[in-house]
């Protein structure tokens, strides 16, 4: 079985967010980057578990600059067999999707994994786009995945519930909490990751129809208004008359 896991790199949640002088680009300076948690904890770990149980290979792919190698090696340490890096600035979801689709279109993967969203742009866009390029079914927000031969059974999170469904391989999915448990790479994994193959391929040209024209920081909160614990009627009055939320 051939599995592909798409991994992205995002600033750590605790990172301070700032932009360049004309507010058109994110300022990387001093920012700690991590593998996007949904890609790492759920998509990658479940792919590795399936491979370990059923045989096959797990390939990870990242669209990004050479500096992303640390994140890619971590994915190899967790259990992927080989890696591909498409050498480009991941400037938009559309651009990233085009690159992944170009790579995957002739590679005959049985299953392509995405995280449910990146925690920086929170777009939830790339997986659906790749599925469309490849004309494959897309099961989003999957919190459970089991395989029986070429038939997959999944649960997907929907508003206020879950949907249980079946689909035949090949298809594309995006992984949410529940699909697997976070795995800490062990020493052996870290050692073998150093020598696992990482192929670098050039990007294809793609412009797309959207770009960020400006970033702004949200206005600072006015500061908390403290209410005496014995004055809950006053809090209710403020929520009604001042905040106008009830």
């Amino acid at each position: 079985m051939k599995l592909l896991v798409c991994i992205s790199q995002t600033p750590d949640t605790t990172a301070k967010i700032s932009f360049n002088a004309d507010n058109t680009e994110f300022n990387n300076a001093g920012v700690q980057f991590i593998m996007n948690p949904y890609d790492e904890w759920y998509a990658l770990v479940r792919a590795c578990e399936l491979k370990e149980a059923l045989g096959g290979t797990v390939t990870v792919i990242n669209v990004g600059p050479a500096a992303n190698e640390t994140t890619i090696r971590k994915a190899l340490a967790i259990g992927a067999d080989d890696a591909v890096r498409i050498d480009a600035d991941p400037k938009s979801a559309g651009f990233v999707a085009k690159q992944i689709a170009e790579y995957a279109k002739n590679a005959q993967f049985d299953l392509i994994f995405f995280g449910k969203e990146t925690i920086d742009y929170n777009g939830s866009e790339v997986g659906a786009m790749v599925a469309e390029y490849l004309d494959l079914p897309f099961v989003s927000y999957a919190s459970k995945l089991d395989l029986n031969g070429t038939v997959a059974t999944l649960e997907r999170d929907i508003e206020g519930g879950v949907e249980v469904l079946e689909v035949d391989l090949p298809f594309v999915l995006s992984a949410a909490k529940g699909m697997a448990e976070q795995r800490i790479p062990n020493m052996r994994g870290i050692m073998t990751a150093r020598t696992k193959p990482l192929t670098e391929i050039p990007a294809v040209a793609f412009d797309g129809f959207e770009k960020v024209s400006q970033f702004t920081l949200p206005p600072a909160k006015a500061g908390v208004k403290l209410i005496d614990p014995n004055e809950m009627v006053e809090l209710v009055r403020l929520l009604h008359e001042e905040a106008k939320v009830i």
């Binding site: 777009g123 866009e125 659906a128 599925a131």
Partner: peptide, 23 residues
């Protein structure tokens, strides 16, 4: 921007060769 909308928006943008903003 629901689980349904998000799962369709990206596909639509590709199929229509259009722009996309999600959320």
């Amino acid at each position: 921007h629901t689980t349904t909308g998000k799962s369709v928006a990206g596909r639509l943008a590709v199929r229509l060769q259009g722009g996309l903003i999600s959320g």
